[in-house]
Simulated scan of single mutants.
Amino acid sequence: MTDKYMSPTPLLDFEASPIQCLVANRGWLSLSQTDRIGAAYDFVRNDIGFGYNSNDALPASKVLGDGYGQCNTKGTLLMALLRALGVPCRFHGFTIDKRLQRGVVPELVYPLAPRNIIHSWVEIYHEGQWLNLEGFILDAAVLAALQDAFPQRQSLCAHGAGTDCLQSPNVEWRGASTYIQKTGINHDFGTFDDPDTFYASHRQLTGIKGLLYRLVIRHWMNLRVRKIRNGHVPRIPGGEVSLVPTQSDLKTQEAI
Rank of each mutant, 00 (worst) to 15 (best):
M1Q: 11
Y5D: 07
S7C: 08
P8F: 03
P8E: 15
L11P: 08
A16I: 03
N25M: 04
N25L: 12
S30W: 00
Q33Y: 09
D35N: 15
R36S: 09
G38I: 12
V44D: 08
R45E: 01
F50T: 04
S54H: 12
D56I: 03
A60H: 12
S61V: 08
D66M: 10
D66S: 14
Q70F: 00
Q70G: 02
K74L: 06
T76M: 10
L81R: 02
L82F: 09
F94I: 01
G103E: 07
G103L: 04
L108F: 14
L112F: 12
H119N: 04
E127G: 02
N132C: 01
L133P: 10
E134V: 07
A145N: 07
L146H: 13
A149T: 01
S155Q: 03
S155G: 05
A158N: 09
A161Y: 10
D164H: 15
D164I: 06
C165Q: 15
S168Q: 14
K182S: 14
G184I: 00
N186P: 04
F189M: 09
T197C: 02
H202Y: 09
R203M: 08
L205A: 06
W220F: 01
N222D: 11
L223T: 09
I228R: 03
G231L: 11
H232I: 03
R235L: 13
R235T: 11
G238Q: 03
P245S: 07
S248M: 06
D249G: 08
K251A: 15
Q253Y: 14
I256N: 12
